[in-house]
Design a binder for these strands. Structure first.
Length: 920
RNA sequence: AGGCGGAUAGCUCAGUUGGGAGAGCGCUGCCCUUACAAGGCAGAAGUCGCAGGUUCGAUCCCUGUUCCGCCUACCA
C-alpha cells in the first residue's frame, strides 16, 4: 500500500473489525500453558451476563488491555483470562420481568422450568457484552472464556463450600439479616446501599402499668414496628429513669405490658428522650439488646414487608381489635402513617420532629430493605480475614494507589460474618441436604412455589453430591437446601477456578498467582477482599500481586452516570463516532489515580484528532521513507535525526516507567506530547528540509531515520491505540504478521545525544523568537526576519551551517553570528531601520546544551549556596562574625557559581537586606 | 459520627529530595506553507480554597478552617 492509497482522513470503521478478526484468527491472544517465558496474567472482572458495555467497563478493560498488550510485546507469556458472571439476583430479575410481560411468573413455571428458561436466555443473548469487549479491542484469550456456572467452576464452588463446612467456617442459623422485600431474598451487609434521608422522629407516650396517668416518653423513627416491641430500654445510670427499671409499661394500641430494662450499650442518654423501644425481630441493635436482656422476638412483618394478617397480628402482639383490622396487610410505608394516626387519636404522641437518618436499599432493585429474622448460611469470616489482612500489610499484595490500602484494612478488621444464602433460584444451589425423617415429620412446602421450608433445627448434610442415604437413619428422604449461594461466592474463587482448580492444571501452575488485578473501587469489598481470603485459604497463596484500583467514570459535571439522569455516555456510540482508539486514549489519559474520570465528549474529539494526526504523519512517511533501517551509527547521522532519536529514547524510557507504575495518564501524555509536538511539529518539518535534495547522503540517512523512528513510535503507541497502529504498521514496509507480536521499544543508550538536543534547543529558541517577533509586529510572511546569534565559536563546527540554515528556513529569515562580547543575558527584540532584528542572548559554545545546562545548574547551585549562606548568617551561632566577614569567606565560592556579576550582586544585596532586617 | 480523597488558567487536570507555575480543550490574532484546517504559528489568561506556622525561600512540609465528593457506621 502506498501513501496515495491512504485516505486523507483516518476512518476507524474501515479498520477496526478487520484487524480484530485477523488477531483472533491468527490466535495472537492465546496464551501457552507450558511456556518457559515469564508469565503475566490478568483475570478479567467478569461482567454480568445481563450486562451491556458502559463507560465503566470501557475504562476497566482499556486499562487491562494496555497492560496486557504492553507485556505481550515485552515478550511475556500473557494470559488475559476472560469470563462472565452469572449475576444471580440481577439475572433472575431480568427473566422474571420477561415472564411478567408474558403474563406468567417464576412460581407458575416452577424451579426446573424457570432455570431452563434462564439458560435458554443466556445462550441466546447472554454473550452480548463479549462482542462489545471485542469491539473495544480487548485482547483476551477468548478460547478460555469462562462462566461462573460452568461445570468446572460449579465443582470448585461445591468443593469450597464443603471444605469450609468441614473446617467449621460455615454455619446455618436463625439471624437477623437484610431482606429485600421485592427480590424476596436475604442480602449481605454490603449489598445494602445507604441513603441519607430526612425522616420523622416520633416521641410516643408509653403509660406505666401501675399508674396509667404517668407515662414514659419513647423516641422512635419507626412507630409501626412498636407492635413488635418487647421492652423499653433506659440507661442504667440515668437518674431520670433508673427507678423505673424492672417496672412495666403498657404498649400503646395493645393490651400488652412490656418491661423497662437498663441497657448501657443500646441507650445514648443524650439522644431523644433517653428511652428506647426494643424490637428484637426488626432492628439490628434491638436484636443484640434483646439477646442481652433475654427478650422474646415478635415478628410482625411477612416476607413482603407487609404487616402480618389480622389474626396472626393479634395473636402475636395482643393488638387492639380495631387497630389490628386497620393495620393488617399494610406495607410498612403505609403502616407508619396509619400507626401515627391511631396514636394521635389516643393522644399518645408527644411530638413529631424532622430527623436525618440512613435508609438501606437493595443494590439491585433499590427497594427499601428490612431487617428480618430468618434461617441463613453464614461464613465465619474472621479466621479468613486475618491472613488477608497480613498479606496487604506486609505487601505480598500491593494495592495501588496505596491510599485505598487503609480502606481495605479498616473494613477487614471490622468485618462481619458473611451471609451467603439467597432465596432465589438462579445460582449455585447450596450443596446441603436435610433428612425429613431426622428433622421431624416431613418438611412443609411453600404454597406459592412448592419450595421446601427447612426448619431451623434441621441438621444439614453437606456433601459434593447428593448422599445416597441419610447417614444417621439411612431411610429418610433427603431434601436439598433450596437456597443458592451469593453470586460473589463464586466470584471469590475466580482467580483459581478459571485456571482449572480443583484440578492441578498446567494453567494453574503457570499463571497462579496472577500478576495484576484491575478493578474499580466499588467492588473492593465485594470481590477483591474475598478473592484474597479464598485464594489464601485454598491455594495457600495470594491470588494476585498487584491490585490496581481505578476511578469511577462520571459525566462532565461530575455526576454519576445513570439512565434516569440521561447523562450516560454510551461507549458504543462513542466508538462509532470517533473510533475505538480515540475512546481508549481518552480513558487512559484521564485516568489519574485518586480522582474520578469526568468524561466529556470534547475530550474524545480532541484525541480523535490525535489519531488523525498520526494517520497523516503515516501518509507523509509513506511518501518518503523506503523502509530501510540506517546502518550508519546514530552518532554519524545529521543533526535533526540524532535529536529525534535522542528524544524517542527518552520518551520510550518514560512510557515504560510510567506503565510500570500504572500511571496510564502520564504514559499517554508522554506519547501524545512526543508524537505531536516533537515528532510532527519539529522533526518532520526539519526532515523536509533535508529531503529537498533527495539524492544527497543526508537525505538518505534522514529517510531511513524517518522510517525507523516512526515504526518505533507505532510500537510504543500500540497498547493505547491498537487498531490505528496495526493499520499503519501493516502499510509500512514490515516483517512479521502483526504489530501485536513485535517487541515493545526499550531505551537505547546509543540513541542518546545531549549534544544534538543542545543544537535543537538553540534552533527551537531561535525559531520561536523570530516567529514571535514576526507575529507581534504583524510582519508579513513575505518579509525576512534577521536573527543575530551571539557567539563566535559555533560557526566553526560543520553542523552549525545546517542549524543556521534550518533556522532560516523554518522562521523565514536570516541568521548571523555576532561577537560573544555582545552577549546579552536576556532575549531582546528590537525594531531597526532594516526591519525586524531579533537578538538572542546565548552563550554559544562547542556543546551548546552542555553550556546551557551548566549555566542553569550554576544558577541553581548558586541560589542554593546563597540560601545556605543566608541561613548561616541568620543563625545566632555566627553572630560573633561580622556579616561582611562571612560574605567574604563565601565570596570565592559564590563567584565560581555565579554565572554573571549581576546575579552575584543581587544576591549580595538580598543578603544585606536580610541582615539589616535581623539587626533591627 | 468517623475515615479517606479533592480544591492550581474559562473547563478538565498534571506538577516530590521546597527555589522556573505547566498541559489538553476552549478563547484571540495571523496563515488553506506540497502529511494533516480534525491543521500550522503566535498570544491573552492563575493572590496554586482561606488563615496561621516552619524556612533565607512554601502550590509542595505542619496546624487550623471552609466547601465538594467518596467510603464506613447501630445513634432509636
Amino acid at each position: 500500500m502506498s501513501a496515495q492509497q491512504l485516505e486523507k482522513i483516518y476512518d476507524p470503521k474501515q479498520v477496526e473489525d478487520r484487524w480484530y478478526r485477523h488477531w483472533i484468527e491468527r490466535g495472537f491472544f492465546h496464551a501457552s500453558s507450558t511456556s518457559t517465558r515469564p508469565s503475566y496474567c490478568i483475570v478479567i472482572p467478569p461482567p454480568n451476563v445481563t450486562g451491556s458495555l458502559h463507560v465503566g467497563h470501557a475504562l476497566n478493560n482499556t486499562l487491562q488491555d494496555i497492560l496486557v498488550r504492553w507485556r505481550r510485546m515485552q515478550g511475556d507469556n500473557v494470559l488475559w483470562m476472560p469470563g462472565i458472571d452469572h449475576a444471580g439476583i440481577a439475572t433472575q430479575n431480568v427473566i422474571e420481568r420477561q415472564l411478567q410481560a408474558e403474563g406468567t411468573s417464576r412460581e407458575a413455571l416452577g424451579r426446573e422450568r424457570f432455570l431452563e428458561r434462564v439458560w435458554e436466555w443466556k445462550a441466546k443473548s447472554g454473550g452480548r457484552i463479549i462482542e462489545q469487549l471485542q469491539r473495544l479491542g480487548a485482547s483476551c484469550d477468548w478460547d478460555r472464556l469462562r462462566f461462573t456456572m460452568d461445570p468446572g467452576l460449579s465443582e470448585a464452588v461445591r468443593l469450597v463450600f464443603v471444605r469450609l463446612y468441614q473446617d467449621d467456617l460455615l454455619y446455618r442459623g436463625e439471624r437477623l439479616i437484610n431482606w429485600c422485600p421485592r427480590c424476596l431474598t436475604a442480602l449481605s451487609d454490603i449489598e445494602v446501599e445507604r441513603e441519607d434521608i430526612t425522616g420523622k422522629l416520633y416521641t410516643i407516650r408509653y403509660p406505666l402499668a401501675d399508674d396509667p396517668t404517668q407515662y414514659l416518653l419513647v423516641a422512635t423513627t419507626r412507630p409501626e414496628t412498636m407492635l413488635g416491641d418487647t421492652a423499653v430500654a433506659v440507661h442504667p445510670e440515668d437518674d431520670r429513669y433508673r427507678h423505673l427499671i424492672g417496672k412495666q409499661v403498657r404498649l400503646p394500641l395493645t393490651t400488652r405490658e412490656i418491661p423497662i430494662v437498663g441497657d448501657a450499650i443500646l441507650v445514648d442518654r443524650e439522644f431523644g428522650t433517653g428511652a428506647v423501644k426494643i424490637t428484637p425481630a426488626h432492628d439490628f441493635n434491638d436484636f443484640e439488646a434483646g439477646a442481652r436482656n433475654r427478650l422474646s422476638r415478635i415478628k410482625i412483618l411477612d416476607i413482603h414487608a407487609n404487616l402480618l394478617p389480622e389474626t396472626e397480628l393479634r395473636l402475636r402482639t395482643k393488638i387492639e381489635i380495631e387497630a389490628a383490622g386497620l393495620l393488617a396487610g399494610l406495607p410498612v410505608q403505609k403502616a407508619r402513617p396509619k400507626v401515627e394516626q391511631l396514636l394521635s387519636a389516643r393522644l399518645a404522641i408527644e411530638k413529631v420532629e424532622p430527623h436525618r437518618m440512613a435508609l438501606g436499599r437493595c443494590y439491585r432493585c433499590k427497594t427499601v430493605v428490612e431487617p428480618l429474622l430468618s434461617d441463613q448460611w453464614f461464613v465465619r469470616i474472621k479466621p479468613l480475614a486475618e491472613p488477608a489482612i497480613q498479606v496487604v500489610e506486609n505487601g505480598r499484595v500491593r494495592i495501588v494507589p496505596e491510599a485505598w490500602k487503609n480502606n481495605y484494612l479498616g473494613w477487614m478488621r471490622d468485618i462481619k460474618d458473611w451471609c451467603i444464602s439467597r432465596q432465589i433460584w438462579w445460582g449455585h444451589q447450596i450443596p446441603a441436604w436435610y433428612c425429613e425423617n431426622c428433622s421431624g415429620s416431613g418438611f412443609l412446602r411453600r404454597a406459592s412455589d412448592g419450595e421446601p421450608l427447612i426448619p431451623s433445627h434441621a441438621i444439614p448434610i453437606v456433601a459434593l453430591t447428593k448422599p445416597v442415604a441419610c447417614p444417621s437413619c439411612k431411610s429418610g428422604t433427603l431434601v436439598q437446601d433450596p437456597d443458592v449461594l451469593d453470586t460473589w461466592f463464586s466470584s471469590a474463587l475466580w482467580p483459581f477456578s478459571t485456571l482449572g482448580w480443583p484440578q492441578q492444571t498446567p494453567e494453574l501452575k503457570t499463571f497462579y498467582p496472577t500478576s495484576t488485578l484491575v478493578t474499580g473501587l466499588d467492588i473492593l469489598f465485594f470481590w477483591v477482599a474475598r478473592m484474597i481470603m479464598m485464594g489464601l485459604k485454598f491455594m495457600g497463596e495470594v491470588p494476585f500481586r498487584d491490585v490496581y484500583i481505578h476511578a469511577l467514570v462520571r459525566d462532565a459535571e461530575g455526576q454519576k452516570m445513570s439512565k434516569s439522569k440521561g447523562n450516560v455516555i454510551d461507549p458504543l456510540h462513542v466508538m462509532d463516532q470517533y473510533g475505538t482508539d480515540a475512546l481508549r486514549f481518552t480513558l487512559a489519559s484521564m485516568s489519574s489515580p485518586g480522582r474520578d474520570v469526568k468524561l466529556a465528549e470534547e475530550r474524545i474529539e480532541g484525541y480523535r484528532n490525535f489519531t488523525n494526526k498520526i494517520w497523516n504523519a503515516a501518509r507523509f512517511i509513506l511518501m518518503h521513507a523506503d523502509g530501510e533501517r540506517e546502518a550508519v551509527p546514530p552518532a554519524q547521522r545529521p543533526f535533526p535525526n540524532r535529536w529525534i532519536l535522542s528524544r524517542l529514547t527518552t520518551a520510550t524510557q518514560n512510557v515504560n516507567a510510567e506503565l510500570q507504575q500504572y500511571r496510564f495518564d502520564r504514559a499517554a501524555s508522554i506519547v501524545y506530547q512526543f508524537i505531536w509536538h516533537e515528532y510532527c511539529d519539529w522533526y518532520l518539518e526539519l526532515a523536509k528540509l533535508s529531503l529537498q535534495n533527495p539524492s544527497g547522503g543526508d537525505a538518505r540517512r534522514t529517510r531511513h531515520t524517518l522510517f525507523e523512528t516512526f515504526e518505533t513510535m507505532m510500537r510504543l503507541l500500540h497498547p493505547f491505540t491498537p487498531f490505528l497502529t496495526e493499520e499503519i504498521w501493516q502499510a509500512l514496509p514490515h516483517e512479521g504478521e502483526s504489530i501485536v507480536l513485535q517487541s515493545y521499544p526499550m531505551p537505547r543508550d546509543d540513541w542518546r545525544s545531549p549534544e544534538a538536543e543542545a543544537l535543537f534547543s538553540l534552533l527551537e529558541r531561535s525559531v520561536a523568537l523570530m516567529r514571535t517577533g514576526r507575529s507581534l509586529l504583524n510582519y508579513s510572511p513575505g518579509k525576512s526576519v534577521d536573527l543575530y546569534v551571539m557567539g563566535a565559536h559555533e560557526q566553526n563546527r560543520p553542523e552549525f551551517e545546517l542549524v543556521r540554515s534550518s533556522i532560516g528556513h523554518l522562521a523565514k529569515g536570516s541568521v548571523e553570528i555576532i561577537s560573544v562580547d555582545d552577549a546579552l543575558s536576556s532575549d531582546v527584540l528590537r525594531l531597526t531601520d532594516a526591519g525586524v532584528t531579533v537578538g538572542i542572548g546565548l552563550e554559544v559554545d562547542v556543546d551548546l546544551i552542555k553550556a546551557l545546562d551548566r549555566i542553569k545548574k550554576q544558577r541553581d547551585d548558586f541560589q542554593k549556596e546563597a540560601g545556605r549562606l543566608s541561613g548561616k548568617l541568620a543563625n545566632p551561632e555566627f553572630t560573633e562574625k561580622a556579616p561582611s566577614e562571612v560574605i567574604q569567606e563565601h565570596k570565592d565560592r559564590l563567584q565560581i557559581l555565579a554565572h554573571d556579576e549581576g546575579l552575584l550582586k543581587r544576591s549580595e544585596d538580598q543578603l544585606r537586606d536580610l541582615l539589616r532586617h535581623r539587626s533591627t
